[in-house]
Amino acid sequence: MKRLMNILVLLAGLMTAMLVQAADMEVNTPAITGLKGSMKARHGQLAGFYASGAVGFTRDGLITVRDANTVPLAQRQSVNTLVAAENNDRNALYKEIANANGHPEWEAEVRSTFAQRWIQKAPAGWYYQDASGWVKK
Rank of each mutant, 00 (worst) to 15 (best):
R76Y: 09
A85D: 06
G13D: 03
Q77P: 00
T64N: 04
Y127W: 15
I97H: 03
K136V: 09
A74W: 07
S38N: 15
G56L: 08
I97Q: 00
S52P: 08
E105W: 14
D130W: 09
D89N: 11
A122K: 08
A98Q: 05
P72K: 10
L93P: 01
L8F: 08
D89V: 12
S52W: 05
T81C: 03
R66L: 06
N69W: 01
A124H: 11
W134P: 02
A108H: 11
A41L: 10
I97E: 05
L46D: 10
R111F: 05
T113N: 07
L10I: 04
F49M: 00
W118S: 07
V71G: 06
G37W: 05
L93K: 03
S132D: 06
A124I: 02
A23I: 10
T81P: 00
L35W: 13
E105S: 10
L10G: 09
N6H: 13
L4F: 11
L46F: 04
P104M: 04
V55N: 08
R117L: 13
P72E: 12
G133L: 10
V71S: 06
M18T: 12
A41M: 05
W126F: 07
P30G: 06
A98Y: 11
L35Q: 04
R76W: 05
L35C: 12
E107V: 13
K2F: 03
G102S: 05
Q45I: 02
M1D: 12
T58R: 13
V55I: 07
D67S: 11
A131T: 15
D67M: 10
K2T: 12
P72V: 07
I63M: 08
D24Y: 03
T29L: 03
K2L: 13
K95V: 13
N91A: 09
I119N: 07
A23L: 06
T70M: 12
R76G: 02
Q120H: 12
A51C: 00
A23R: 01
A84C: 02
T16I: 13
I119P: 00
L93H: 10
V79S: 01
N6F: 10
V110K: 02
L10N: 07
M5K: 07
I97C: 07
V55W: 11
Y128F: 15
N28M: 14
Y127C: 03
Q129C: 01
V65D: 04
D89R: 04
K2P: 14
R76V: 06
Y94G: 03
F49Y: 15
Q45C: 02
V83E: 00
Q120M: 13
N80C: 01
L8R: 09
L62Y: 13
T16W: 06
S38Q: 12
A74G: 00
I97M: 07
A51S: 10
V79D: 00
K2A: 12
V135N: 04
P104W: 13
E96R: 02
S132R: 14
A68E: 14
A54V: 00
H43Y: 12
T33I: 14
A84F: 10
